[in-house]
């Protein structure tokens, strides 16, 4: 991995400044923030009226209505809260595969998303997952934390051992504070079945985005002859002779598998985004993610 190259360039960060993380759901935040909340609260945006009951704050009584109707109504305003943005990065060994490298690509995308989150005062938390929770940060807010965020991301290394996202996701679901947007970046190569992992996050609690990242070598394998394919995660081997029917069958299987992940996610209200690592990540972030509504 060309570590010398910064994950985000200044020029790119400038362009990201104009973006914000958008949640399709109105989720409860922790602190008062820039985001509309489900909760009625103290903001300038009027939401509703309700009958006054004893103990209500007298400051929100609509005196004009009382003057006209001689009845006490309480004015209610929309609360504005901050947004939790959880970014999960799959650091299993399989992400080291491909050209460009999938992990590098994920790091770049994660960094971009996290930057956008931080800049817009969202609570951003990062987590590296593999067969367990590898590393995570607490919630981070504000532009000041960009450096910390970049450090965390760029120091991520692929983990040995087979991918078993289920355990890691369970732990994430249990410990994640607050609700919010959850973006998962992964190749979803999990032999035990990715559904097992996704069920923890693709629920009502999170506005879930599954970012499925595969390398072009996986999408359209350039293989020939009699091969002994070695799984770089668990050293499992598959001996096969590459024939055209096999390649066709592989592609069909890949599509079917991607579709099954997508269906699983979308049925649970999540969003599924598929991308190849040969799509430039700035194009993905600035174009593709905006189109799909994650950034706006």
């Amino acid at each position: 991995m060309p570590a010398t190259e910064p994950l985000l360039t200044g020029d790119f960060m400038a362009r990201l400044d104009r973006l914000d993380v958008i949640s399709r759901k109105i989720l409860a935040g922790k602190m008062r923030g820039e985001r509309r909340s489900k909760r009625r609260g103290q903001s300038v945006e009027f939401a509703d009226f309700r009958n006054y009951t004893i103990g209500d704050d007298l400051r929100f009584i609509d005196w004009n209505i009382y003057a006209r109707l001689d009845r006490l109504f309480l004015k209610m305003f929309l609360e504005e809260e901050d947004l939790s943005v959880h970014i999960l990065i799959d650091t299993s060994k399989s992400t080291r595969f491909g050209n460009p490298d999938k992990l590098r690509y994920m790091q770049q995308v994660a960094a971009a998303l996290a930057y956008v989150g931080l800049v817009n005062h969202n609570r951003v938390s990062l987590a590296a997952v593999s067969n367990r929770m590898i590393a995570e940060t607490g919630g981070m807010r504000g532009r000041r934390r960009v450096g910390q965020m970049l450090d965390f991301i760029s120091n991520l290394e692929p983990d040995a051992g087979p991918t078993d996202l289920g355990a890691a996701m369970k732990r994430f679901a249990l410990t994640a504070q607050g609700r919010g947007v959850c973006v998962m970046l992964s190749d979803f190569f999990d032999k035990s079945g990715i559904e097992n992992a996704l069920r923890y996050v693709a629920g009502r609690r999170f506005d879930f985005y599954a970012l499925h990242i595969l390398s072009p070598q996986e999408i359209d394998p350039d293989l020939k002859g009699d091969l002994r394919l070695v799984d770089i995660e668990d050293q499992d081997t598959a001996e096969l002779t590459i024939t055209q029917p096999l390649l066709d069958r592989y592609k069909a299987n890949l599509n079917a598998w991607c579709l099954s992940v997508k269906q699983y996610v979308t049925r649970r209200g999540g969003a599924y985004l598929f991308t190849s690592t040969n799509v430039p990540f700035d194009q993905l972030v600035l174009g593709y993610l905006r189109q799909r509504g994650l950034l706006g």
Partner: peptide
């Protein structure tokens, strides 16, 4: 056994499935 060229891939599960399917 055929002397096969070794080739690393991210995951074998799709390949195995394909072979099986065929």
């Amino acid at each position: 056994k055929l002397r096969r060229k070794q080739h690393d891939i991210a995951s074998t599960f799709l390949w195995k499935k394909s072979v099986q399917d065929l």
